[in-house]
Structure formats: C-alpha cells, structure tokens
C-alpha cells in the first residue's frame, strides 16, 4: 500500500471527509459500475454506491490493512449490492430485465423494440443490450463473478478476497457462471429469432 494512501486512511479515520473523498476518487467510478452491472439500473446503482461508500467511511476504523483498501472497498460495494438484491427479492420487485419465473421455465418479460433491429449500426448496440440483459438474468452469485471477472477484469485473487471465498471456489464459480451466461444468450437467440 502506498504511503499516500495510508496517510489518507489515517486522516479519514479521524473523520476528515476531504481526505476520504480523495481516497475513494480513483475507486468510485469502478464501484459505481460494479453496482450498475449488479443491479441493472442507474438509480439503484447510484444509491447503492453512495450507501456503500458512506458505510466505508463509517467503518474505516475497522480497516487495519488486512487487504488492499480497494479490495476492501469493493467488498463492501458488492455486499451492499447483494443486500439490495436480497431486499428486492423479498419485496418482489419485478424488473423488465429479469425473466419471470414460471412453472415451465422462464418467460422473458423483455419488451422487444421492433425499430432497433433494422439498421446495421444498431446491431452492436443490440448486442450490448442483449448481453446486459443476459447478465441481469443470471443468479446473483454468478452475476457477481461475471461482473468482477469479465466486465471489470479483476484477477481471481482479488475476486476471492472481495467475495471472501477460496480461489478454488471462485474458479469453479466463474466457470459455471460463464456457461450459464452462454446458455442464457443462446436460449434468448433461439426465442428471439422468429421475431427478428
């Protein structure tokens, strides 16, 4: 850990808001993006990130440098997101991105926009949208590893620290998550082809 960072952490522990803001400046965009990929929309991502960062600030006293500050911060962010998802599950908030669970499998709630598929330029956008939706359709434990590994490109080691799991578990979880994602995308393509 850099001297500079340690100093900022010490100042933050004493309640210095400015130091804390400098400390998190380089991390907050990534944190926000993790939250966005996890939660699927901008408003929730904003709320969750802020909540997580306030939490980080409040509990910085208990940070003693066991891991790097960024890892610790992302851990709090991901935990906050997982909490939020759990809360959502309890409140049964339906999102258009989430497939509706039915007895005979999943029915996509997605509203197909007929205007988007006609133009070539939009194809890339369509692809992005597809993959975003597919990620949203993943179970949260899979989603988080995809977000951390494939979208944000964190190493296995970092992920295992953030999620507080052994690396072996992370390896198999990433593997399963990727396969699940592939499954979702191919299924989607099958369903959507007749419409296009």
């Amino acid at each position: 850990m850099e001297e500079f960072e340690i100093e900022l952490i010490e100042k933050s522990k004493r309640g210095d808001v400015e130091s804390f803001e400098i400390l998190i400046r380089s991390h907050q965009t990534l944190a926000y993006n993790i939250a966005f990929r996890m939660l699927g929309n901008v408003e929730d991502a904003n709320d969750a990130t802020q909540e997580a960062l306030v939490k980080v600030f409040k509990s910085i006293q208990s940070f003693h440098g066991q891991s790097s500050f960024s890892t610790w911060l992302y851990r709090i962010v991901t935990n906050t997101c997982l909490d939020e998802l759990r809360k959502r599950k309890r409140q049964q908030v339906y999102s258009y991105h989430n497939p509706m669970e039915m007895e005979d499998g999943q029915i996509d709630r997605d509203v197909v926009d007929p205007s988007s598929s006609t133009e070539e330029i939009l194809e890339k956008k369509e692809e992005i949208k597809n993959i975003q939706d597919a990620i949203q359709a993943l179970p949260e434990q899979h989603r988080i590893v995809i977000v951390l590994r494939d979208i944000k490109g964190l190493s296995y080691e970092q992920i295992s620290e953030i999620l507080d799991c052994p690396q072996g578990t992370i390896k198999s979880r990433i593997s399963r998550a990727r396969l699940a994602l592939k499954e979702i995308i191919t299924n989607r393509e099958l369903y959507q082809k007749p419409y296009v």
Binding site: Y32, A45, N46, V54, I128, D150, G153
Partner: peptide
C-alpha cells in the same frame, strides 16, 4: 466471444450529482 463482449461493455460515467450528494452524506 461472450467474455470479450463483457469486457467491451462500456464503463458508465458517474452521475453528475454523485460527488455532491455523497459529500453531503459523508458530512
């Protein structure tokens, strides 16, 4: 391919009022 698509997903910019409201909350 999926992995590459994932990593190509654009990074979102922070909302404009993010730092202001965060500062408020921290204070």
């Amino acid at each position: 391919n999926i992995k590459n698509m994932c990593s190509e997903l654009p990074m979102l910019e922070l909302p404009p009022d993010f730092e202001v409201s965060l500062h408020e909350k921290l204070v």
